[in-house]
Design a protein around this nucleic acid. Structure first.
Lengths: 235, 235
DNA sequence: CGGATGGTTGACACCTATCAAGGCCAGTGG
DNA sequence: CCACTGGCCTTGATAGGTGTCAACCATCCG
């Protein structure tokens, strides 16, 4: 019956099915899940939800890249996090039953699956395993936050940019004859927001890394020469 | 029956009972909770758990002040957070079933209630409301982390120190004839760790705030003159 | 062509880390 | 009582990093 239920499960064909927070849903609840379930394709730049908007469910990134950003009173903004396929977003507003504190915008053409609020609530009440998986995601988020707080307190901006570029190369890069290459999914301002520095500073940091032959960058084309696949993980 | 169960409940007499993550526990589960329940008094400087130690349960601060700190490979450390009465700590290691990523040390004489791992697991399986409350605490933690990340990216260290001192005064201060006064529960190094700056820098920041007549500080005695009670919330 | 956008560069003031030295204070042992 | 010591904090000098303001450049688009 495992097979039959996986076929009926709306996430059954998803690459992230086994790790999905909805994977424990079975039996009659599957139909509730299916009713609340929608798939959404987002164009680059399109918004999934706005800061301050009411929560209308829980989102799961299936393809692409979503940026979570908060706008401050003074007009500036901070890019808090990048959400990759398999990541669950929007659960804070859902669990806390309150407006979104961040806005979600697609940085690449993306696909996002939504489980509407009503159905999600119903399912969680009936199936605690779903809540347990959601709690695990919260823990992961806390871990990431702590890592970020520690990094910004103990690591130079230059090193943090290096780490960020290596991370992005790992996610978006392709091997070419002379190393690895990627199309940078972020603008300079986004990179600056992510590191918590001004755009001018970011520009200079990039300049310095280029001087060090860490990479070559022109527009959004980034090339890291002499980068062996395994060395991406280490630094 | 509400009354009877509250009296039996191990947290029944706690000031934070209504908000406690264990409040939903009722019926037979109460005896399981009671069996796993212990109260611990910590002296100043005493450790509740070490970084890297196995989780042995979920802790709830009942009195005092606990510092959560992580040590890095290079010997330095970061003070990630202060835990006040009513706060739940150690749940990450518990929920994630893994070693503690931080160490918990009492900054003041404190009392902490522990629900042992085994009992806590049993209760959570039987009572999803407990898990839901734990998830809410996770969300609160994420909110705090985001606020911290945003503050360190958008606010000067000087302003952040100001905010921190106002916060501490609100928590630990007492009104005196000329304003508010407190015994600072943190060393200079701890303050520096909390802001993510070097001790020397912190010392200079303090010096500047004194010049601005923001406060008077000598050792751990802090005096904020002309500070009306309501003005503490605004800034 | 003109304007908008996004990015870079320069100048400058300010802030911070680092290294080094010194002050303050409590506890210790003579 | 004194000198000594170690921990904690402060102060100074210096080099490097960062924010800010302003100008400039490239590209795209109407």
């Amino acid at each position: 019956m495992q097979h039959a239920s996986k076929n009926q499960h709306p996430c059954g064909k998803c690459a992230f099915y086994s790790g999905s927070i909805w994977q424990p849903v079975a039996g009659d609840a599957v139909s509730v899940l299916t009713r609340g379930f929608t798939r959404n394709d987002l164009q680059e730049g399109q918004s999934l939800y706005q800061q301050g908007a009411e929560s209308n469910g829980v989102f799961c990134v299936s393809k692409g890249l979503i940026a979570l950003r908060t706008h401050h009173e003074d007009g500036s903004s901070t890019l808090l996090r990048l959400a990759y396929p398999g990541d669950v977003i929007g659960y804070r507003a859902f669990l806390g039953n309150r407006p979104h504190q961040t806005e979600a915008i697609a940085l690449l053409p993306s696909r996002v699956c939504t489980v509407a609020r009503r159905g999600a609530n119903q399912i969680i009440l009936a199936n605690p395993d779903v809540l347990a998986r959601l709690a695990e995601r919260c823990i992961d988020e806390i871990d990431n936050n702590h890592a970020q707080i520690i990094a910004s307190a103990t690591t130079s901006n230059r090193q943090r940019l290096k780490n960020l570029m290596l991370f992005l190369m790992e996610k978006h890069g392709e091997p070419v004859s002379s190393g690895f290459q990627m199309h940078l999914p972020l603008s300079r301002s986004d990179l600056a927001d992510l590191l918590g520095v001004q755009p001018e500073t970011l520009s200079r940091l990039i300049g310095r890394l280029e001087c060090d032959n860490f990479f070559t960058i022109k527009g959004r084309k980034v090339l890291m020469a002499g980068l062996a696949p395994q060395s991406m993980k280490s630094a």
